[in-house]
């Protein structure tokens, strides 16, 4: 302790400079965080205010008391013509799309990656290229032919048609391949000496070992599936099949036309509901998610 008092004279200047730069750092970060948050705040405000006020004055500074009312309308009253696309039914469809996509992708990807990494396969290289070429072309560039084919197969307005074509890429397979390759060589050798066959090794050792990776992949894929827009827009014409994100298109069209007061409150509640589940997952499982995302870099 004594030597601290001895050295008080010198560090005065560096210390002050340090403080200033820290202040700037925080200021930049806080500004960034506020810009990120601002649009959501506006949405919340308009969702809690009577539509007529929003229409006249735009987003205000104070929160109103209409949030529960708008929430009820958004969730349980249909906005379309058939009466099928309530917020609740869209929520359910989004959930099915997100879960179905994430689970399907992970299961199929893990199986394929396991086959490629852990087996002596004569056509392994060929299978590898066949699968990994799909990383090159996003769905968007082959959207029309994909639509035509899905239509030919009679899969319009079905969950299969919604989910399966989206799974036709190798992101998860690639990811798990990378991970499996990083698993120490000796583990499978030890397991073989311990008498475990391929199925046993996969179930007893590889899957439990991949837990974190599966969780990370699940989060990324769920968000990706939930947020799909173009494909659901094309493939679902039946309002009962709409997802929340696809429903945005309908909301926009409703706000567009008509002479009545646009239902800003209800629309914004729907938009918030469309955003909330994936955001919550990403925030709560942040460390897994970040790990999964950045791991794919390698």
């Amino acid at each position: 302790m004594a030597d601290i008092s001895l050295s008080t004279a010198t560090p005065v200047i560096p210390r002050r400079r340090f403080l200033w730069s820290t202040l700037v750092d925080h200021a930049v970060l806080i500004t960034g965080a506020l810009i990120m948050f601002f649009p959501l705040l506006v949405m919340l405000q308009t969702a809690s205010t009577p539509d007529i006020e929003t229409m006249k004055y735009g987003p205000g500074l104070y929160f109103g008391d209409q949030l529960d009312d708008n929430f009820r309308k958004a969730m349980f009253e249909a906005s379309g013509f058939s009466g099928a696309n309530t917020g609740l039914s869209m929520f359910k469809n989004s959930l099915i799309l997100g879960l179905g996509f994430a689970i399907g992708k992970i299961v199929i990807g893990m199986m394929a990656a396991y086959a490629i990494v852990y087996f002596r396969l004569r056509f392994a290289t060929f299978a590898f290229w066949l699968i990994f070429t799909t990383l090159l072309l996003p769905l968007e560039v082959r959207i029309l032919p994909s639509y035509e084919i899905t239509q030919k197969l009679g899969l319009l307005n079905t969950y299969t048609g919604l989910i399966v074509p989206l799974i036709a890429s190798a992101t998860a397979t690639f990811f798990f391949r990378q991970f499996f390759r990083s698993v120490p060589e000796e583990l499978v050798e030890a397991a073989r000496i311990d008498g475990a066959g391929p199925v046993k090794f996969f179930i007893d050792i590889l899957v439990p070992l991949s837990q974190t990776m599966i969780a990370a992949m699940f989060i990324i894929m769920f968000v990706y599936g939930w947020n799909q827009y173009l494909w659901p827009t094309m493939i679902t014409t039946d309002e009962g099949m709409y997802t929340l994100v696809r429903g945005i298109k309908r909301i926009v069209q409703v706000l567009q036309g008509g002479n009545e007061i646009p239902e800003y409150g209800r629309a914004n509640v729907l938009a918030i509901i469309a955003v909330l589940p994936p955001v919550a997952i990403v925030i709560f499982f942040q460390s897994w998610f970040v790990k999964g995302l950045t791991e794919s870099d390698k």
Partner: peptide
């Protein structure tokens, strides 16, 4: 700073509209 990752592009577009 990262939560916006999970916002769907069309919803971001909708926020832009507002």
């Amino acid at each position: 700073l990262m939560w916006v990752y999970a916002v769907a592009p069309p919803v971001a577009g909708y926020m832009g509209l507002i």
